[in-house]
Design a protein around this nucleic acid. Sequence first.
DNA 1: GACAAAAAACCGTCTAGACGGTACAGTAAA
DNA 2: TTTACTGTACCGTCTAGACGGTTTTTTGTC
Lengths: 181, 181
Amino acid sequence: MSKNDTRYKILIAAADIVQTDGILDLTLEAAAEKAGVSKGGLLYHFPSKDALIEGMVEFLMKNYAESIKMGAEQDLSQTGKWTRAFIKETFLQSTSNRSMDAGLMAAAAINPNLLKPVQDAYEEWQNHIEHDGLDPILATVLRLAVDGLWFSEIFGLAPLEDNRRKLVLERLIQLTQDNEE
Amino acid sequence: MSKNDTRYKILIAAADIVQTDGILDLTLEAAAEKAGVSKGGLLYHFPSKDALIEGMVEFLMKNYAESIKMGAEQDLSQTGKWTRAFIKETFLQSTSNRSMDAGLMAAAAINPNLLKPVQDAYEEWQNHIEHDGLDPILATVLRLAVDGLWFSEIFGLAPLEDNRRKLVLERLIQLTQDNEE
DNA sequence: GACAAAAAACCGTCTAGACGGTACAGTAAA
DNA sequence: TTTACTGTACCGTCTAGACGGTTTTTTGTC
């Protein structure tokens, strides 16, 4: 069992707890037990609870940020490529990878400072989106709609059923294609 | 001091704590002290912490739901009135009344079941918005954008600066006015 | 409208348990 | 010999909730 395997197992376990039982049930002991590691073992990898949350946030941001960048680079059309990448990747992530939410919520609850990396990433994306060859207000609306979808799924606030979700995605993409500045 | 006054004071105090110090600092004692009530007094009104959160959620939903309904009723144009009311009221609430966030976050953190009333209200609004005389996909996009704005402000994820925020609001409203089904 | 009884509103202390974190001795593998 | 743990014991602090007591308000009765 390599160092990274155990770390990974702990992060997944922690995300799982947040997701199913709520933030308040995320304790070091509970996370350790769920990961099949002793409390000492957990503290070996994450010397404090803040460090654990930090790890969760890092973990969630890593793939996400890279995917968006890659999506933008591979887009054949220059106009609106960042906005499209952001839309597509968020739609994808929020179906497949619910542990995203867990890290975010845990950080917000336990230590808002830990949200910094997410905030920084968003600033960058927002900047790209505003200078994407689209009408910046429209581009911003699209970005917000994507976040709204995520939000609605985190909190279960009238989340869209599958078909509608797909139609919304298509519409958002379409709106990036015929609204040049 | 009537029963309702004290209840109200406790709810405000609790929302205040969540808002300024974070969810984890919301304890019964802290809420009681801030409300100028003893812990026993607080427990008289809210027999458990869950009950307190429940009260917060109820409180936040009451005005919000009523405002949206009123906004829709007073709208001179039939087409898109619910969507417009939802947009306007959420923009307003999320500038003026941060206790929305507090209740929501507290519930999500402490006991996700307590989100039920919010979820129910959202189901209703989503239903209105989808049958508002607008293209339902567009209407849904607008709704999501509004939620996204709220979300971005709660977590500080590239929140819009004042002027852009205003322009986005105007654009959203405008989109409800020239997109009949 | 005086007054007692009852109910409602509220106080403040106490307790049992949980939690984050420390310390440390030991183990198994690389 | 270092890395990656296990396991246990422990400490200080915090907190939800219980509880018994006290004040204030309401209600019924004359």
